Amino acid sequence: MRIRSFSLELGERMEVSGLADGSVLRDQLGPRLWRGRVELHPAPFAQARAMAARLALLQEPGRSFLAWPVDQAGPARDPKGTLLGAAAPQIASLAPDARDLSLSGLPAGYELSCGDGLSFLYGSDPVRHAFHRIVTGSVVADGTGATSVFEVVPSLRAGAAIGAPVTLLRPAFKAVLLPGTVTAGSSERVRTGGASFEFIQTLR
């Protein structure tokens, strides 16, 4: 699909309450999920009909797809994966706080930056797709290809495992279309424009 505009944000699921002394309590109500919106470029009728058919299929219950941030296909310092080459990064360590991890299997000197995305599979029945963004500053692999511990957002979920392969190019998560958000667009002369949809991460 030819994307005209794209947005991706990490949703909040929390309850906020204030106390008499002026303090604010924030309670997490559930997992934070990525959600986004896509608007498509105007397309010739035939292409627009084909895309509308695919979106209609994804509106069926139980249908999902893999979404990734199209505005960043790879790390900021290596957007096309040229430096990564055939390296096979994996999770080297997981901190007890469920916020920090480290990687191994990177090229020596490989650099990751704040905002870079990464994904990996975890759990079973079903296997889930984790997508995180780095919030620590520059992370540089040492001579053995290992990084120091760095923080990611959202927090790591139960099931993440040491040794899991990590994807740095087109890191993706499983998503579903949000009901009532699919717009097929309108046709003028030889093109259909204005098609758009919204999606949200699913952990199923």
Rank of each mutant, 00 (worst) to 15 (best):
E60N: 05
P89R: 06
Q47C: 08
L57N: 06
P31Q: 06
M51D: 15
P44I: 04
R26V: 15
A76I: 11
A95I: 09
P96L: 08
Q90C: 14
P61Y: 07
S23Y: 03
A48T: 08
R99M: 09
L94A: 06
A92K: 11
L58C: 01
K80L: 15
S93H: 13
A92P: 01
A56T: 08
P61S: 10
G30V: 07
D116I: 00
L25H: 14
G105Q: 10
L84Q: 09
G74W: 05
G36R: 10
E60L: 13
R32C: 00
G18T: 13
L103F: 03
C114T: 11
G109P: 03
M51Q: 12
I91K: 10
S102Q: 05
S17V: 08
G115N: 00
L83A: 15
D116G: 04
P61A: 09
G36P: 06
G81S: 07
R63G: 03
P107W: 07
R35Q: 14
P44G: 02
D71M: 04
L33I: 09
G36F: 07
P42H: 09
Q47H: 13
A76D: 05
R63A: 14
D100A: 12
V38C: 10
D21A: 04
S64M: 09
V38R: 04
G117Q: 02
S102F: 06
R26N: 06
M51C: 06
L101A: 03
R63F: 03
A56V: 03
E39T: 13
L94K: 04
S102T: 03
A73D: 04
R26D: 03
R54Y: 07
A108T: 12
A86Q: 12
A92E: 14
L55M: 10
L25S: 12
L40S: 08
F45P: 00
A46R: 12
S113H: 02
S93A: 15
P69L: 07
L118F: 03
R63D: 03
K80Y: 11
P79H: 13
G30K: 05
Q59N: 09
D116N: 00
L19V: 07
R26M: 14
L19F: 10
A86V: 11
A98P: 01
A108K: 08
V70Y: 06
G115S: 01
H41K: 11
V70I: 15
H41P: 00
L33F: 05
G109Y: 02
I91L: 15
L83Y: 06
A88M: 13
L29N: 11
G22Y: 07
A87N: 06
E60K: 14
L55T: 07
S23R: 15
